[in-house]
């Protein structure tokens, strides 16, 4: 890179970097949503059990 003219062509690395950033944050958000959904299903089941017992 020492004797180059103009900026290096590193666009692919930039795309890879932002794919990792957006992908990881996106996956974490999906993970939180799925955990919420699973807990809400459990909650609904517990409500049903409580209703049957009452």
């Amino acid at each position: 890179m020492m004797f180059q003219e103009g900026p290096a062509d590193t666009l692919n690395y930039m795309i890879a970097g932002y794919t990792v950033i957006l992908g990881t944050i996106g996956l974490y958000i999906v993970n939180i949503i799925l955990r919420f959904r699973s807990l809400r299903q459990d909650e609904a089941l517990l409500d049903e059990i409580d209703a049957e017992r009452a």
Partner: peptide, 16 residues
């Protein structure tokens, strides 16, 4: 702006 030597990969720096 695009960094003069590193090019576009320098843009990763902000979120890094």
């Amino acid at each position: 702006p695009q960094e003069a030597i590193m090019g576009d990969v320098q843009r990763v720096f902000y979120f890094h």
